[in-house]
Amino acid sequence: MSSSTRASSDRWRSFAADTLALIVFFTATGILNERFIAGMTWEQVLDARLLGAGLMVVSGRPYGLWRDWIMRFSGPRRGSRIAWDALALVSFQVPIYAAILAISGADSDALLRGSLGVTVIMLALGRPYGAFLNLVRRRFGLPDGGDKPMSLNVQDP
């Protein structure tokens, strides 16, 4: 396989891995937050999850690149990786999530509760999601992210 073909294949696998990881991991947490913390109706939850899935297809790979870039600041210690993974997730996903809630019909109170709730959830899930993302990437035959700034995770031939 030529290096150009391999690079193209790796980009598609990176897109698929990052997108799949985001959809799988955050659909369940979104449902729990929207229904039981934000107090949205099941119809609003369905609308939010459908909109969220569409946005996750568009934002999965950009988030993966964002996380890789942010993680270059982390040190080798576990606490550093936890903090930087949490920062990456909160800084990228909370604004998108707030927009999903607003578009899905959440009133201002539900928008505030949902956004605060998801911030807490994402602070707690930043590192577990980062580890899950790396696991999915490995399953797709890709290296873990976060080692090189804005890495496309393209392996050398």
Rank of each mutant, 00 (worst) to 15 (best):
S4E: 05
S4M: 11
S4G: 02
T5G: 02
A7G: 01
S9P: 00
D10T: 07
W12H: 01
A17M: 12
A17Q: 05
D18Q: 11
T19K: 02
L20C: 14
L22V: 10
L22D: 00
T27K: 02
A28S: 03
G30M: 08
I31D: 00
N33A: 08
I37D: 01
G39M: 06
W42A: 09
E43I: 03
L46Y: 01
L46M: 09
A48M: 12
L50C: 10
L51G: 08
A53H: 09
G54P: 06
V58H: 04
G60A: 08
R61A: 11
Y63H: 12
G64P: 00
W66V: 02
W66G: 06
D68N: 11
I70V: 15
I70Y: 00
M71D: 05
M71V: 08
R72W: 04
F73W: 14
R77V: 12
R78I: 07
G79K: 12
R81T: 04
A83G: 09
A86W: 01
A88N: 05
A88T: 05
A88M: 02
L89Y: 09
L89I: 03
F92W: 14
P95Q: 10
P95S: 10
I96W: 11
I96N: 07
Y97E: 07
Y97D: 06
A98T: 14
A99S: 06
I100R: 08
I103E: 07
A106I: 11
D107F: 13
A110P: 03
G114S: 06
G117V: 04
V120Q: 01
G126C: 01
V136H: 04
V136A: 06
P143N: 11
D144M: 07
S151E: 11
L152M: 11
L152S: 15
L152P: 04
V154Y: 07
P157V: 08
P157C: 04
